[in-house]
């Protein structure tokens, strides 16, 4: 049942995973699957490879297929490699009404990519996504754990520069989020 993998979680991640599992009643440890997938995605290059998902299955002592079917259901899990910084730009009604399409076009032009694509240096991925609960500060984008709101082309330019200068991979699990509202 457990699959052999060549990768393993860091000690810090293992400690966090144990803490998460302890929140559920005896035998209900599968509840920890989604939180652990977030940790795995952040730790192993920002996406969930088959190898990473097998590690999650082995860690939780469940079948790999149980992990694949969950990972493929949720839009925050990347099943193919992505850039260091994924720009999730909201395109739904309230953001659309306040210029989201222009923001998406501006980012695309600046980075030379279309929604769904990654820059050739692997730094940025652009995604057009659905409502992120920031409709009153539209237009907006999410990168890692940070919400960047009330965007203008100038703000977007500055954001791209600061992310590029930092050169870091950003994850939804980041604790050093910086919200711009």
């Amino acid at each position: 049942m457990s699959t052999s993998t060549n990768i393993k979680f860091s000690d810090a991640s293992m400690a966090e995973i144990q803490k998460i599992i302890s929140r559920y009643p005896e035998g209900k440890h599968k509840s920890a699957l989604i939180p652990i997938l977030h940790i795995a995605q952040a730790e192993f290059d920002g996406w969930l490879s088959a190898e990473t998902m097998d590690l999650v299955a082995a860690t939780l002592k469940i079948q790999p297929v149980e992990v694949y079917e969950v990972a493929s259901f949720y839009s925050m899990f990347h099943l193919a490699p992505v850039g260091n910084c994924v720009f999730d730009v909201c395109r739904t009604s309230s953001c659309w009404a306040r210029g989201a399409d222009d923001i998406i076009a501006h980012i695309g032009k600046k980075l030379g990519i279309k929604p769904g694509e990654t820059t050739s240096d692997g730094m940025f991925t652009l995604k057009a996504v659905e409502c992120l609960g920031s409709c009153g500060s539209a237009p907006m984008l999410q990168c890692g754990a940070s919400y960047h709101e009330n965007l203008t082309p100038e703000k977007v330019d500055a954001l791209i520069e600061s992310y590029r200068a930092a050169g870091k991979r950003r994850s939804y699990t980041d604790r050093d989020y910086k919200n711009t509202l």
Partner: peptide
């Protein structure tokens, strides 16, 4: 809580 609100979860 929705996953996008990770910072709110923190």
């Amino acid at each position: 809580i929705r996953g996008e609100y990770f910072y709110v979860a923190r």
